[in-house]
Design a binder for these strands. Structure first.
Length: 234
DNA sequence: GCGACAG
DNA sequence: ATCTTGTCGC
């Protein structure tokens, strides 16, 4: 699949911030998903000294069964800067997605959606580029305040930033650290929570992101840069 | 001015 | 993100 739009990627931090403000205008938090959501994709990345690896896992929404896996490798060109994560990860994600034949009905990203200083986390970036519904599912907080949700699975509390509800802190399993859920594009906070819970089985992370995380790790190990270590074991 | 700060 | 085995607790 190809993106609906693109923009330069060789930017300074200042230019990236200006671009985020501009693209944030296109984000929608109104539910606009296919009638039956049939396929869901999970995306995650792994890093090497010089390379970034991205993996996209396509799942059947009703069963969480893997239907397709694509990945890509690309040299890291943008440093990690809180608030500018997408400029470091999206290039690799796009290379992987161009290898994927199916346009998923929903995408779960590892990181924030609108729970971001300029309401444009990585989930929003991916959503706007492909004009697809996306959810930001982060393991920790970037911005906002929230009460600690009850310790039981399904409990959650609103994540508020600048007096506005930008997401929720969700307990996906009993007595485990909660996840930070926020809309990426074409989805509301409530619907995003609904889907994350629906896609969560026996682990803290929902299946799309959990499997993508697990797979990029394997893919990274099978690289020539990591083969030397493997030769010693063999 | 001093912290906090997705992956 | 990444370096990494065993171990404590629900």
């Amino acid at each position: 699949m190809q993106p609906v739009q693109s923009h330069p990627w060789t930017l300074s931090a200042e230019e990236a911030i200006a671009l985020q403000r501009k693209l944030a205008t296109l984000v929608s938090t109104e539910d606009d998903l296919p009638d039956p959501v049939q396929t869901v994709a999970g995306i995650d990345l792994a890093y090497n000294d010089k390379q970034a690896f991205a993996a996209v896992v396509l799942l059947e929404a009703s069963t969480c069964k893997v239907q397709q896996v694509v990945s890509a490798e690309i040299p890291v060109q943008f440093p990690y800067v809180p608030g500018l994560l997408s400029f470091r990860e999206v290039p690799a994600i796009m290379r992987a997605l161009e290898k994927q034949s199916v346009r998923p009905d929903l995408i779960v990203c590892d990181g924030q959606g609108i729970a971001h200083p300029r309401r444009f986390g990585i989930a929003c970036h991916v959503g706007v580029l492909y004009d697809l519904p996306t959810i930001g599912c982060a393991k920790s907080r970037l911005i906002g305040k929230a009460d600690d949700p009850a310790p039981t699975k399904g409990s959650y509390s609103e994540l508020v930033y600048k007096r506005e509800v930008v997401g929720a802190v969700l307990r996906t399993r009993d007595n485990v650290n909660p996840l930070y859920i926020s809309p990426g594009h074409r989805i509301s906070v409530r619907t995003a929570l609904h889907w994350i819970l629906k896609l969560t089985t026996r682990y803290r992370l929902p299946e799309p992101t959990r499997l993508a995380d697990q797979l990029v790790g394997q893919i990274k190990r099978k690289t020539i840069g990591s083969l030397f270590a493997d030769l010693n074991e063999a």
